[in-house]
Nucleic acid binder design. Structure first.
Length: 508
RNA sequence: GCGGAAGUAGCUCAGUGGUAGAGCAUCAGCUUCCCAAGCUGAGGGUCGCGGGUUCGAACCCCGUUUUCCGCUCCA
């Protein structure tokens, strides 16, 4: 475990040192849980996106893409359940360090008082036996009435306070009631705080409540609200899917572990619309398809596992995660959820518009069911660099750090290196660079000994190095050096591009 | 969010009250060598930030911010 923590730190250092990932706003001391992608990071990230987009949109005739805006109508987040389900007042007990929903603490207190009333009833029942009239007892017994009044009073404070977001009064109420922490038994509470995981901002010049809009906490809703547009204009027939890559924002209470959990992150999502009743078939289908995609990244199966959810989110009737074994352990990288008709049904209700599909095969209209695949791009990035980071001891006793990134995903595909910086070798190398750069992202380097230049390319995961030597000037051949094996082959200049193309494809 | 630890050059770190350092990396030149660590030279740091104590603070104190670890939370 200590070793793995160490490895994780090394990966973070390497990411920074070689221009993959930087802390956001670093020269201003940084911004918590926000990161920037550097010159090589952005290439790798773009390659991952491209690889996913092809696998989803290009290779599946019934999946199309969309790019929806980050700003969306605020009511969408009411319909999706994000406003209500994740807008709770929280309070911490300073002694036990436990966090509670403040309203639940008060509700529990009410339940306690109700328990007292129930006790009185049980006692009275014993005393009066057959002749006991419960309704009369409840409406006349002074102790019961006092407790009822107490409950009434609490509710009259709690509910308006909840509605008005009056956090101070909720805190006051907890103090006045003498609510204690079930763990520590203490009344040492923090202030009540609202943890809404959605970021909000104002649209328009007036900043009253009606103008408040949110930064989307997931990209999925951008797909759902475009369902009708795309289904109609794309003449899509069920089953079909809509894919999207885009940023999402969550104001995480605890956001940590490098780019694993960020406040601003990127999702690659596909919502697949199916006939109700067939969702489990497609759920299984997409689980299989998605794990295949992960394996196509050149990472072995042992690094992945499925985790089926027991506790389902408010919208799902089946859900599984694909987990990857990061240096920090197995963690979720992708979710495959059967979302039922929850989202489309909700948008139908909130907009009053019919969001349905007429299925000519069964001659029926219905709200489609949805199977979602939702992949974290940043987590995929982290998985790839975690797996790729390799420290090797070579035969001569020296060490090298190699990023064994799948060549198709590597930031730089080839480096063009003149063996020495004289005898016309740089000029020849420039010539090669000038045509190769139209086919791939290449890098030219003539500084330092050839071995050192190879190591530099290893550190950023460049799969191929083209070396121009004295023989090149005689017969127009170069050597191509492969990153992982360090083996070299002599090939003709005119074949370089074709050979690299072939290599990039063959290892996919 | 709570508790603990840390923040000095791009990286890894030394320096514990008295003129900011090393190795590696970077850049220029020499060397021309197919797998780092040859030679010469150069650049780069308001010691995370702010305040305080002191004749004097990288060092002591307070606050703050960022990172890491544990707890907590996670659509």
């Amino acid at each position: 475990m200590a070793n793995n923590e160490d490895l994780f730190k090394k990966i973070i250092s390497h990411s920074k040192e070689y221009g993959f990932v930087f802390q956001s706003s670093e020269i201003y001391d940084g911004l918590a849980a926000v990161y920037d992608y550097g010159q090589y990071g952005v290439e790798l990230k773009n390659n991952i996106k491209d690889h996913w987009w092809k696998a989803m949109v290009q290779y599946n005739e019934n999946i199309v893409g969309v790019d929806s805006a980050i700003f969306m109508h605020p009511t969408i987040w009411k319909a999706s359940g994000h406003v209500d389900a994740f807008n709770d007042p929280m309070i911490d007990n300073k002694d036990s360090k436990k966090r509670y929903r403040a309203d639940v603490l008060i509700e529990d207190h009410i339940a306690k008082i109700e328990g007292k009333i129930q006790k009185e009833v049980t006692k009275a029942k014993k005393r009066f036996g057959e002749t006991f009239d419960e309704a009369q007892f409840l409406s006349t017994n002074p102790r019961v009435l006092a407790n009822k009044k107490k409950i009434e009073g609490i509710k009259n404070r709690l509910y308006p306070a909840m509605d008005n977001n009056d956090l101070e009064d909720i805190k006051l109420l907890i103090e006045e009631l003498g609510v204690v922490c079930p763990f520590s038994g203490s009344k040492n509470w923090t202030d009540v705080r609202q943890f809404n995981l959605m970021f909000s901002t104002q649209m328009g010049s007036l900043s009253d409540d009606s103008d408040q809009i949110y930064l989307r906490p997931e990209t999925a809703q951008g797909i759902f609200v475009n369902y009708l547009n795309i289904q109609k204009t794309g003449r899509m027939k069920i089953p079909f899917g809509i894919a999207q890559i885009g940023k999402a924002f969550r104001n995480e209470i605890v956001a940590r572990q490098f780019i694993f959990r960020m406040r601003e992150f990127e999702q690659m999502e596909m919502q697949f619309f199916v006939r109700p009743g067939e969702e489990m078939k497609w759920y299984e289908y997409w689980k299989e398809q998605r794990i295949k995609w992960h394996l196509s990244l050149g990472i072995p199966e042992s690094k992945y596992r499925f985790h089926e959810h027991d506790k389902l989110a408010h919208y799902a009737n089946a859900a599984a995660d694909i987990e990857f074994e990061f240096p920090i352990g197995f963690k979720e990288i992708e979710g495959i959820h059967s979302r039922t008709d929850f989202d489309l049904e909700a948008h139908q209700k909130y907009t009053g518009r019919k969001i349905q599909y007429f299925d000519p095969e069964i001659n029926k209209s219905y709200v489609p069911y949805v199977v979602e695949t939702s992949l974290g791009l940043d987590r995929t990035f982290l998985a790839i660099i975690s797996y790729a980071y390799t420290e090797e001891r070579l035969e001569d006793g020296s060490e090298r750090v190699v990023m064994k990134i799948l060549p198709a995903l590597a930031p730089i595909k080839a480096a063009v290196l003149p063996l020495v910086k004289k005898d016309g070798l740089p000029e020849k190398a420039r010539e090669i660079m000038d045509f190769l750069k139209f086919d791939y992202l290449c890098q030219y380097d003539e500084k330092d000994a050839i071995g050192r230049r190879y190591r530099r390319q290893d550190a950023i995961g460049t799969p191929y190095c083209i070396t121009i030597d004295h023989q090149t000037l005689e017969d127009n051949t170069v050597t191509i050096r492969e990153r992982d094996s360090m083996g070299q082959e002599r090939i003709a200049i005119e074949n370089i591009s074709g050979i690299i193309s072939k290599k990039l494809r063959s290892v996919k």
